[in-house]
Amino acid sequence: MDKTWNNKGWFFVLPVLALVLFSAAIPLMTVVNYSVQDTFGNNVFFWAGSEWFEELLHSQRFHDALWRQFLFSAIILAIEVPLGIGVALAMPRKGWGVPVCLVTMALPLLIPWNVVGTIWQIFGRVDIGLLGHTLFGLGLDYNYVRDPLDAWITIIVMDVWHWTSLVVLLCYAGLVSIPEAYYQAARIDGASRWAVFRYIQLPKMHRVLLIAILLRFMDSFMIYTEPFVVTGGGPGNSTTFLSIDLVKMAIGQFDLGKAAAMSLVYFLIILLLSWIFYTVMTNAGAERGRATGGEGGR
């Protein structure tokens, strides 16, 4: 008992605990319940055990969706992180340009997801969409409804348009917190633009960048609304990501048990990957600290 004992703090935590219980814990338990049973409706349930899980893990359809999901997240991160850092570096640090840039950057983030989907769905249409029609007019064979590659490109461009701002804003926050003295010292030391980025800006952005990558990974891994609105998972199954597949299964086919099992597996995968991401990235920083700290003990 280090502090003088005071129990009142718990009263402030209680509402949050209640909220988490109702919004997360109880629904999750329901899903667990469904995943081990089978039903034909009418509230009649049969015990299924691990049957749904076994079926799911051996299904080609699930493997394909999972693979598509990984590919999508990887591409998204590979584009949005460097692009976000680049834009943040290019933004002004003071003057009237700052609020203008910040508001412009924040705009895509303020649009509801289904609206973003709708915008791009129309934007890319060959008959009436500005983008689709222009590309078609230029002689390019662009049609996201028929061509899987075009569908992927459309969805990726849309996601980049929608979410790069988040990376930009986080990086920008990291950049403006660097004291002016660092830049002055670098100028005096005769450092090149690249050296300033490599030895001052990147190390100082390390923490926010970690958060940005984590957020973008989790979000892109769970993407649903936008591709659903634009392509509906097609053409064929080419843009059917895990979440879309899940909904198809649960609502389209009413395979409640299998869908519940898939939800759980999906949830565990995200949890696991986020944890791996987080530990790997924080350790990378901590290790450098520790290795040299040990040397200091000599």
Partner: peptide, 28 residues
């Protein structure tokens, strides 16, 4: 500043975090 050939020590220590002491000194 970079063309004036001066050096400056600031109020708060400015060092390059990711570099060793040696690399810091060698940097300029």
């Amino acid at each position: 500043p970079e063309q004036r050939n001066i050096a400056q020590v600031f109020q708060f220590p400015v060092i390059y975090d990711t570099m060793t002491v040696y690399e810091n000194l060698a940097f300029p």
